[in-house]
């Protein structure tokens, strides 16, 4: 008796909550999230700031990132150049802002494409099972063990000589290497759902495999896909920075990693800010995405706790 009363009570609360206007619900959702996961909230704030800067870089950046002010080479921070200038007189702050753009394009691009590919592969493997699953799983076992960074360096090194679009190459390369890992996660989640009554019911109702996969199974694994993607984002950002640092980034585009590269090293002594700020940006972005991803994982899918990739 007491239990049903309690259940009624909570149901009523839930009812009242659902009736509140969207803005209030959103605000209280954010408030609850930040109280439960303060680090996650800090991470989310950092992520939002980076996304904002990246999107509005052409508007809020004080200068064009490629503009060279040759008279103001290697200056320290001033009112005109907030974080100083580099050896070609380019404004460091503006370059950092445009660098955020590249980081996020590569990060979201690679993770987005690989999530899509991984979802398709995982669905196909788990749903068709049998020999399809057997063969694809074996291929993926080998694929996962590929030496990521080395393959990427080689691939981008070859593409660089051809003059093709390096951003696209970087996104595709990173996506290719991540999709194997992610497809395994999707596959096991779909396998778990496959034998649930609702799938059986849909089959009994005459739904075909494609309809079942996309209308019934996919919506159920969406949170999982989002969580694994958010955990993979910081890795993609770090990979972009490392590759650009090694000289395999896009030319003519500002990149945090490239700003730290060995070619600029002789100028770091004169203007240590050149060595400092790009790294601060990389570390902050990676930290923000890491914290946000961890919190998201705990909230959306506690089963994944302790996995990273």
């Amino acid at each position: 008796m007491a239990r049903t009363q309690a259940a009624d009570h909570y149901a009523a609360i839930a009812q009242r909550r659902a009736e509140r206007p969207f803005i209030v619900r959103l605000a209280s959702g954010i408030w609850n999230f930040s109280r439960r996961k303060p680090l996650g909230a800090i991470g989310a704030a950092i992520v939002l700031i980076f996304v904002f800067v990246a999107v509005t870089a052409p508007v809020i950046a004080p200068f064009d990132d490629g503009a060279q002010h040759l008279r103001d080479k290697l200056q320290g921070p001033s009112a005109k150049y907030r974080l100083g200038t580099d050896n070609l007189g380019r404004d460091v702050l503006s370059r950092l802002m445009y660098g955020a753009q590249l980081s996020l394009i590569v990060g979201f691009g690679a993770v987005g494409i690989s999530s899509l590919a991984a979802t398709l592969m995982g669905l196909v493997m788990a749903y068709f099972g049998r020999w399809v699953d057997q063969i694809m799983s074996r291929v993926i076992d080998a694929w996962i063990a590929l030496p990521d960074l080395i393959i990427l360096i080689t691939f981008l090194g070859i593409v660089r000589r051809t003059g093709a679009n390096m951003i696209l190459a970087m996104v595709l390369g990173l996506a290719f290497l991540r999709s194997a890992t992610a497809s395994r996660v999707v596959r096991s989640a779909v396998l778990e759902l496959r034998n649930r009554p609702f799938v059986e019911a849909a089959e009994a109702a005459g739904a075909g495999p494609v309809r079942i996969m996309f209308r019934h199974v996919l919506p159920n694994i969406l949170p999982l896909i989002i969580v694994t993607a958010s955990v993979a984002l910081p890795n993609a950002i770090l990979a972009e920075a490392s590759l650009s640092f090694l000289g395999f980034g896009p030319e003519g585009t500002s990149s945090w990693g490239q700003m730290l590269s060995v070619e600029g090293r002789e100028f770091f002594r004169k203007q240590p800010g050149l060595a400092l700020w790009p790294g601060v940006c990389i570390a902050l972005a990676v930290f923000g995405f890491n914290m946000f991803g961890d919190a998201l994982r705990d909230v959306l899918d506690p089963r994944l706790r302790g996995t990273r990739r």
Binding site: P234, L238, A241, S242, F245, L260, R265, F268, R269, P272, A275, L276, P278, G279, I282, A283, L284, V286, F287, N290
Partner: peptide
């Protein structure tokens, strides 16, 4: 896990 090791190396060398 957030601070890239190669950046630390650069900072140490610079400073």
């Amino acid at each position: 896990s957030s601070v890239p090791g190669f950046w630390l190396a650069i900072l140490i060398i610079t400073f």
